[in-house]
Design a protein around this nucleic acid. Structure first.
Lengths: 346, 346
DNA sequence: AATTTTAGTGTGCTCGAGCACATTTTTTGT
DNA sequence: ACAAAAAATGTGCTCGAGCACACTAAAATT
């Protein structure tokens, strides 16, 4: 029997009033040992679960959650996050929750700090942020901690004891996944790991992937490969990559650690197309186009949308349903090729 | 301004009582044209969304949902479904929903029909079922329709106008995904498509995958491959497969259309291990073990857990939140190799 | 012994939707 | 013009948790 008991039921069973039961349930004291015992006896027998609907109906407290992420105008990589947050907003619109999105310029720590000021001024109950800048993030979190604001992070894993929770992917492993796919297609030759990013703020992000990628080849002792790293900035991609191609005629594979695979694919398509295997990240439209053309072989899906969604929803559920906020949520590393891509684009 | 308006607010604004507003909102009639117009005016200006929490608190109606799936004791394939259903139960335990699971013997249409009788006797509000047997399913659904019981299906797509909603995967596409992976590893040789199943009730299921697999090779005009189909039953696997291996010394790849890849892997591991590429389905433990050993190269994740979860949750949300039940939910076809498997096993 | 303090207990309102029933207003019939 | 019927409208209770406040009873103080 999983009949649902109410406080009134318990009160009746214990022969007291619901006020007393309520005091016991919430340890508010002012209860005689006799009453306490009677109520506890009842509680031990039955399986009382408070009705969350009733609780949330009653509560007039409005929870305010701020999300801080880079402006998608700077990098479409962040666009799916906005959708994920929107999903959460829709899902919880019935409840007293306000979810606000704030953007910062991913190339400017100042912007990051400034927007954080704005958020603090709103005195939210919780903040979900993209900790792009290590030092600044740690500093900011200290502030939030002092104000009693719960902080959740996503996308970037920052090593710091001050960070209590994180939603994202294991980047090292995702590098390994990329490596395993590369090794499936190729059996020898030169492979380039290319880091492309406007600013180099994603450095840790990209390095982890590189480490994982190299780690795979080392562990398997695949000595017929040589792996080179190449760093490109938006301004110099064309010339630098062209000369790199010339200098490395044996190049057979490229692993792009950011969502900019399309830039390389585009250059390769215009160049004399040697067969070069391309593996990159993220299902942004341009990448998927090249996937469909066969120029990009695999994409690894980082599922930013779900990252953002989970980042928000764990916070909301913490407030509404008293659920614990998981320390780390690691999303699966989805392998995408031309055949299954359509099921992932949202 | 996204202030939340209540019926009381609307009543006040329109200068009527909440009872009248309620009648307008629910088209219960008994409203004068004058009042109707006043209320509609207000409704046009503001954006009223009923408070679902309050609605669900009030409603005393208990919704009963029955899930019908094969007994996992016959095939561990179904085990994750049970977990998915459990997840749904936990998620909605606060609401007036009873979710009951019923098992049938996947090898017996009689069992299927009998358990359906039991379910009908419970007069549930909705049923989620695994339509393993085409003819019987269509028949049963007719019964449910007459009784006004909503039917949702998952795992198997049954072609029938009587089926209104389905959660699963596109099997044809999943065959293509398997083919694309096979083609990545191999460039020529003989490939076997192996169907393994106790009963042959999964026939449609397996055939769709085969069609998709073959379709890929035909479309790409990959003429250096020859593709053979082999049907095995649990009783004759060992002998029949052994002789097949002997008769086909050029075999380079095997695509197993059910979750029984481990059986083939096990036979291959004991045989003189020629390099044969194995691609199968489902992250059941034995399969993952062989994945880790390198004997199985890829597994396609059918995500039964999520299928079952979504099958139930769409029904529940239909009742509780008046959401539409989607006609078809196609889950992504997850590609799993040894490097990313750990993130998918639940 | 009378009064104050305090520990313990119970009552009753709130949240918003939904709905039964009571009440008021309008219409119809004679 | 008046009663009866019908239509329209309003009132008030319910759901369960939570909490302020009122209340009772027992202990402490004068």
């Amino acid at each position: 029997m999983d009949k649902k008991y109410t406080i009134k039921d318990i009160a009746q069973m214990a022969g007291v009033s619901k006020g007393t039961v309520d005091r016991v349930l919430h340890n508010r004291g002012k209860v005689s040992p006799a009453a306490l015992e009677k109520i506890n006896e009842v509680l031990n027998v039955i399986d009382y679960e408070p009705n969350l609907i009733a609780r949330n109906l009653k509560s007039t407290k409005v929870y305010r959650i701020c999300v801080l992420l880079p402006d998608p105008a700077f990098d479409p990589y962040w666009l799916p996050c906005v959708n994920g947050i929107q999903d959460a907003i829709v899902e919880f619109k019935a409840y007293n929750v306000i979810i606000e999105t704030h953007y910062f310029n991913p190339e400017s720590t100042k912007s990051f700090l400034k927007v954080n000021e704005t958020i603090i001024a709103q005195s939210p109950d919780a903040v979900l942020l993209t900790p792009l800048f290590h030092k600044e993030t740690v500093e900011i979190i200290k502030q939030y901690d002092e104000l009693g604001v719960i902080v959740n992070t996503f996308n970037n894993e920052v090593e710091s004891s001050s960070i209590k929770s994180f939603v994202g992917q294991n980047l090292h492993k995702s590098g390994r996944v990329a490596a395993s796919l590369m090794n499936l297609i190729l059996s020898e030759g030169q492979i380039a790991i290319i880091h492309i990013d406007e600013s180099l703020k994603n450095a840790v992000h990209m390095q982890e992937k590189e480490k994982g990628f190299r780690n795979y080849f080392e562990e398997k002792e695949l000595n017929d490969f040589s792996i080179t790293t190449l760093k490109l900035k938006n301004s110099n991609i064309e010339t630098k990559f062209a000369s790199f191609l010339e200098e490395n005629p044996d190049l057979t594979g490229i692993f792009i650690t950011t969502s900019k695979a399309y830039q390389i694919a585009s250059l390769l398509s215009s160049a004399k197309s040697k067969k070069i295997t391309l593996i990159g990240y993220d299902l942004i439209e341009k990448n998927v186009n090249f996937l469909n053309q066969g120029l990009v072989h695999f994409l690894i899906h980082q599922n930013q949308k779900r990252q953002a969604y989970l980042g928000v929803s764990t916070l909301v559920e913490h407030f509404l349903f008293r659920k614990d906020i998981p320390e780390t949520i690691l999303l699966p590393i989805d392998i995408i090729n031309v055949e299954n891509a359509s099921f992932y684009v949202s």
